Every structure is written in structure tokens, then in C-alpha cells.
Computed example of a mutant assay.
Amino acid sequence: MPDQTGRRVVVTGANSGLGEQMALALGSAGAEVTLACRNVDKAQQVAEKIGDNARVAPLDLADLASVRAFADSFDGADVLINNAGVMAIPLRRTADGYEMQIGTNFLGHFALTGLILDRIDDRVVTMSSLMHKSARLDVDDLNWERRKYNRWTAYGDSKLADLMLALELADRLAGAGSDKTSLAAHPGYAATELQLHTESPVDWVMKLGNMTPIAQSAAEGALPALFAATSPHAANGEYYGPKNFGGMRGAPAVAGYRRAADDAELRQKLWSAAEKLTGVTVEV
């Protein structure tokens, strides 16, 4: 990682898992890191490991009022890493009534990005997942009001939506002649607590999976996002993930993704739906 002294980075969900490892690595490289988290107590413990160049800011992506409050007090950064998320949880709703996974993972980050993009000087990095390939994204029913809820499909939907956010933003930035860039990343199979909150027997399966040789550590899983956020070779519109074992582990490399993410009509429809649901118009 290049020296990050003098650069400011916001990492959402930096109180544990991948986000914690991103914050620690960036802080060690000299960056001023803002840990934007719902659990501020846990985030403060991470910030203390980093030192004086870390600060904690409350941010609950499942509450658009919290997103707006964060944006109102935001004074700028070089990089935004949209990392926070929930995975395969039972059907729940956000403070604004949206299905929790699409609401937290996608709509919250969409709103955050739109509200502070004018104060991000360099890059926006949005975390997707290998699970985006299992999505059955229905833009007309993002909130699972007509479909029978499936927690894994809902998670895949949110991660495909995140990838489409990153790619669409990249195209819009390029079209506007902006020097800013938008990139996406995924961690492969990283052993974190994210997989252990399904509140089902799958938790035990995932716990065992985290102990297999295929699973990377959280620090290794954070590498693609860190590459996207800091490397001078990371390019606008690229998607990075581990290069080995079908994208599950290894050093960062350009990753493949579903063709649906390049569907211009679907991306425009998703973008319009997100603006309507969040009340945030993204100015590029």
C-alpha cells in the first residue's frame, strides 16, 4: 500500500470484520480514518488501536435520518469505502420500512454516497460479494412485499445492487469528465462474524466453513477493497477480488461478474428506484 499520510478515508462498518481490518491497515499507512458505525462503542475500541489519526462517527445505514445526520456534519475525505452490511438475516425492516438487507447494504450506501459525493475528492469503493451471482433482483419489488422472502436471495440482490451502484457511478463520473472514480470489490470467502447472524442452523455450517483452508482471514479479505481504495493502478469502473480458487482467496485481481450488472436499462431503473426510495438525488 502506498503511504497514505495526509489522506482522509471513511470506512462504514469499521467496528469489526473487514471494515476493522481496512481501518487498521489504512491507519497504519498514515491515513486519517473515520470509522462510520452504528456500534460506536466497538468502533471506539478499534479507533484506540489506530491512534490519534482515527475518529468515530455514528452512522446507522438502516436509518436514513442517521445517514443525513452524518452527511450534514461531514467535512470531506479523499476516499469513501461503502463496506457495512448484514447477511442472510430473517425478514426485518429498516427504520424507513425497507427490507433490511437491501435497505442497509444498498439503499443506505446509495443515500450516503449521493449526499457526500461532492465532498469526496478521489474515490468511492463499494463492497459487493461473490453472492451477487445468486441474485434475482426485482427492481419493482426491492422490499419483498410481493415475493416470498428468501434471505439468501435478498442478500444476493443487495450485493448485485451494490455492484451496479459502483459501475453506474463510474460511468456517470466518466461521462461528466470528473477526476473522481468509483470502484467495486469483494472479499472472496473471508472468515468474519457477518456469516454468523442468520439465526438459523446455517450459522453452524458457516462457522465450520470459516475454519476450512479455503476461508481467508478478515485481513486478507480486506485486501481487494484496500487495493481499490489506495493503488495508483486501480481504475475507474473496475471490480476487484481474490484471484485464486474461483475468487474465494488470494491476492487482489480484476474480478468477473454477472452480465446483469452491465444492463444499462436495469441500472438506470435501479438508480431511479433508489433515488425515489431514499429521497436522495445523486448529483454527478
Rank of each mutant, 00 (worst) to 15 (best):
F110K: 12
A31L: 12
M87W: 15
E193F: 01
G250Q: 03
Y240P: 07
N39T: 11
T5N: 02
A218D: 03
A69I: 11
I214L: 15
V40Y: 10
Q216T: 06
F70R: 04
N82K: 05
A260P: 01
A166E: 06
A25W: 03
L18S: 02
V11Y: 06
R151L: 07
N53R: 15
P58M: 08
D263Y: 01
D171G: 07
L130N: 13
G188I: 09
S28C: 02
D263L: 04
D140E: 13
D140M: 00
G188F: 09
R7S: 14
P242G: 10
N83M: 13
F245S: 15
K269P: 08
G114R: 01
L18C: 06
L137W: 02
R93A: 14
V205S: 02
T104G: 07
G6L: 07
D171M: 04
F74Q: 09
A95Q: 11
E193L: 00
S73R: 15
A135W: 03
A219Y: 01
D60E: 14
D3L: 04
A176G: 13
K159F: 05
D179C: 03
V79T: 14
A235F: 01
G221N: 06
D138T: 02
K133A: 15
A253N: 00
S129D: 00
L64C: 04
R259L: 13
M127E: 09
A261W: 06
V67P: 06
Y239F: 15
V46E: 03
Y239R: 01
A251W: 01
L270E: 01
N15S: 15
A69Q: 15
L194G: 08
R8N: 11
G30I: 10
N244R: 14
L115K: 02
M206A: 13
S128A: 09
P224I: 04
T278I: 01
L165Y: 02
A71D: 09
D52P: 11
G13V: 02
E275W: 04
T113G: 11
R55T: 14
V86F: 09
V282G: 10
A174I: 04
S134L: 10
Q44I: 05
